[in-house]
Design a protein around this nucleic acid. Sequence first.
DNA 1: CGCGGTTCGAGTCCCTTTGACTATAAGTCG
DNA 2: CGACTTATAGTCAAAGGGACTCGAACCGCG
Lengths: 262, 262
Amino acid sequence: MAAPPGMMLSDRSAPPAYDPSAYPPFAVTVDVVVLTFVEGQLATLLIRRGEPPFEGRWSLPGGFVRPDESLEEAAGRELREETGVDAAAHLEQLGAYGDPGRDPRMRVVTVAYLAVIGEVGAVQAGSDAAAAELVAVSDIVHRPVDRLAFDHHQILDDALETVRARLEDTPLATAFVGPEFTLSELRGVYESAWETELDPGNFRRKILGEPDLVEATGNTRPPGPEGGKPPETYRYATAPMLTSPITRPKPKRDDGSDRSGR
Amino acid sequence: MAAPPGMMLSDRSAPPAYDPSAYPPFAVTVDVVVLTFVEGQLATLLIRRGEPPFEGRWSLPGGFVRPDESLEEAAGRELREETGVDAAAHLEQLGAYGDPGRDPRMRVVTVAYLAVIGEVGAVQAGSDAAAAELVAVSDIVHRPVDRLAFDHHQILDDALETVRARLEDTPLATAFVGPEFTLSELRGVYESAWETELDPGNFRRKILGEPDLVEATGNTRPPGPEGGKPPETYRYATAPMLTSPITRPKPKRDDGSDRSGR
DNA sequence: CGCGGTTCGAGTCCCTTTGACTATAAGTCG
DNA sequence: CGACTTATAGTCAAAGGGACTCGAACCGCG
């Protein structure tokens, strides 16, 4: 039942000494899931690997944590180095991934971060020598083959599920769009992340009904090539949380077959 | 702006070599926030530290991750070693804490886990030589002084906030109580975690209205010393999530006013 | 220019959910 | 027994939200 005596590694309160050789060697890295909303779709920043292992596969941007920086600082630095974005509209830790064998070369614990950015232009500029590309999330996730390197596919899936949950009760959606946005754009973030469609009128009522969530700018946007009434624009106000969640509709049961009648 | 050339540590895709001396030395540990519900209160398992740093302060149980085990396995092992509980009713990762200086001795990244257990008896049995004790959460949290060692107070706060959120839309509350429980017990978990009071009738309607959340056992429990109708008991059924959240009431605005009394 | 097509914004209808409350049942203690 | 407790059932009204309609303002096209 109890730990064998003498196994001091299990008790941090009494380590024999603080000699680096006395504890197992771990590398600690950060990986960043960079998400944005471009052309009506969620997109993520991926890097094509140039050498083994997983040569030629997509991977998340990331790198070693430096001795003098915090985990979040490391994530911000990697984001800046890979995308040129100085500060994400939203930067949040997703969790740690440390299964033995997740990197075939050595024991690596990575701390995954979610970075959401609204300004797409900067990304294109910053994707320099690192062979970084913005890839539509829908092109990556729904593929059993051609998975990401390491356990990055799992990390991406977890990031997306976190986003889907955060959209329900936080203003996270506003981080995907620019500082000034239309309600259709905002709705597009929800529809893309949830892979569903939302009623425009009800969505509008819900968003505008949330106190201090958004405020009108007084400006309008010219309509797209499809025509339509010029939409008003809004900006994010101050609410750190929603007072009541925007409920994700149940997955439609008509997915596979529309079996017989409704 | 950019990293100085030659600083290869910032790019995991091209490390010079996999020599342990080539990357910064990190220790990786797991810390476990063990929560249970005893005598109508949330309680957590803490360990009184016997040596510096933070000598004499409470700390979370935890220890080094071994080279051949996953993070979750390490958390389960620590839980087993500290409490004697073979498997928590709920074991979930909270996140990684790795600020430089969080441990004055060396750079330590800890991955925090939340373990919820329902059977209190086993804990008392397992708290052997490690000087582990069950402490009421309310006795710990609301104190600016006498904080936990390291950043464990922050970890505990984060764990509690995670619990408060999980209670809203998952069956987590059932993990705090035994396999057979009354709705009052379950309500007590909510009231204790949320520091609020819930209407018994409405709570009952909500819980029983959730499909596959709980099922009646057909048994009743003798009433407590206060009397009352003998309650029926229930057990957790199968629902992994609630279909609609149990909304946490807004914090009453009457706080602070009665600070003179009791 | 007129017309069908589009999106946007406002509003209606109605069912469901839920907070507040009342009533009854079945125990306790003194 | 009577006052008190908790448990369970039920009622009522307000709020929330899904489905829907309608007019406004823009597009492209003939």
